[in-house]
Structure formats: structure tokens, C-alpha cells
Amino acid sequence: MELLPDETRRFVSALVPDRDDTLREMEAHGEDIGFPTVGPEVGAFLRLSARMVGAERIFEFGSGFGYSAYWFAEALPDDGEIVLTEYDADELDQAREYLTEGGYADRAVFEEGDALETVERHEGPFDVVLVDCHKSGYPDAFDAVREKVAEGGVVIADNAMQSGAQDFATILEILEGSDPESVDDDTRGIADYLQRVRDDPDFETAAIPLGQGIAVSFRK
């Protein structure tokens, strides 16, 4: 399913600012190994979001080899902090190498293991949170970090509309009020997350059809 018509997609891509050599190297690496990064259009939005809220601290649920973190890091002040979380030690080592290459490793904390356990060890507030872990774990990620999001901060969920794991049509049914009998864990995870942030009185949420679809929740 294409989220945007071809001309609109080209328009959005044409507005993405130039990337440095490291980001382009990371994009090529992702393509070579078939790793689904957020892509430059979402990456540029992440960086813009961090700039707009004046982010000083960022937390990622799922960092891979550091592509989204690199975009974020560019928006942080020199004394800012971004916490990367990743199960795969090799990917986390690659993230460290890329952020070192770009000159951003000094503002990065590299955490190997379960992001839910990691976030318990880090005090808030966080100005930006990216949720990009296992889709079934999205609701737990929001619950774990909800009270640690700064007022005026944002939670951004990647793959809000599609990925290789969930069924978009079923998510849409649930959001529109239906209760399908059989729903797989990943689809249920995304649907529950979206319902939760939509209905939370402390957050205001909008969907943006960039990349695989993102949901942006502003802490009021």
C-alpha cells in the first residue's frame, strides 16, 4: 500500500534537506542488508520535531544501527543526550561507529537490551520519545514512558500505518469502532497504542502519512 500518490511522494522527497556523507552511508547500508530504517523523509521530520520543541533529551525504543538517532543528534545541543536502545549488540556497535563518525557520540548513551527495562533506569523528562520497537510492544512502551515525557514534548511512533508485521485494514476497523474476532499481536499492539494516545487527555495526537506512517503525540 502506497501512503502517498507518486507526485506527492516525490514532492516530499524533494524537500528533504541534503544529508551528510555519514547519513548517506547509513542509507546505503540499510538497503544492502534489507534493514527498514525510517527513511530520509521521516528522518528529516524527526530532526525538525526535535528542533521545534528545543529538545535536550531524547529516548528511542528501538534504535537499530542508529539511523533515526543520527537525525535526532544533529538537533541536540552539545550537552544534549539521546538514549539508544537495541537488543542486537552488533547493530548497537554500528550505531556507535556511525555517531562517532558524525561527531555525535558524545551526546549518545548506548544501551544494549530490553528498552522497557532501560527506560526504568533513566529519569525523565524526555523532550522527544521515538517508539520503533516490536509492534506488539508499543502500548507497553507508551505506558513506561508516559510520565517521563516533558510538557511540550512529543512521542513519535513509527510504522503507525504499515510495516511487515501488522494489517492496516484491521487497525482501521478497530480505530473506527469495530472489534474483529481474530487479530494478531502486532496488529493489536499498533491499534491499542493508537487508541491509547488518541484518547489520553494529556496528549494530542495526529497521524502523518510519511514513510510507513507516523503518529505524533504532543504532551499538553
Rank of each mutant, 00 (worst) to 15 (best):
S68Y: 01
E112S: 13
D90L: 00
V149P: 02
I171A: 03
I190N: 03
S217M: 07
E111D: 03
D158A: 07
E181G: 13
V216A: 15
D199Y: 01
A150G: 09
G80P: 04
I214P: 10
E147M: 02
A207Y: 08
R146F: 09
G34I: 05
T205H: 08
S63R: 09
Y67G: 02
P125I: 07
G137S: 09
E173D: 15
A160D: 09
L194M: 07
D90H: 11
A141V: 02
T187S: 01
S13G: 08
D167Y: 03
D202Y: 03
F203S: 04
V131F: 04
D184G: 11
D179F: 00
K220Q: 12
S136V: 02
G54W: 10
T85L: 01
V38Q: 07
S136H: 05
P17Y: 14
L23G: 11
G30Y: 07
L3M: 08
P17H: 14
G213D: 08
V42A: 09
G64E: 12
E27D: 15
A28C: 05
I82P: 09
D132N: 02
M26V: 03
L46I: 11
Q94I: 10
Q212D: 15
K148F: 13
V42C: 02
T37H: 06
E7M: 03
I171V: 14
P125Y: 09
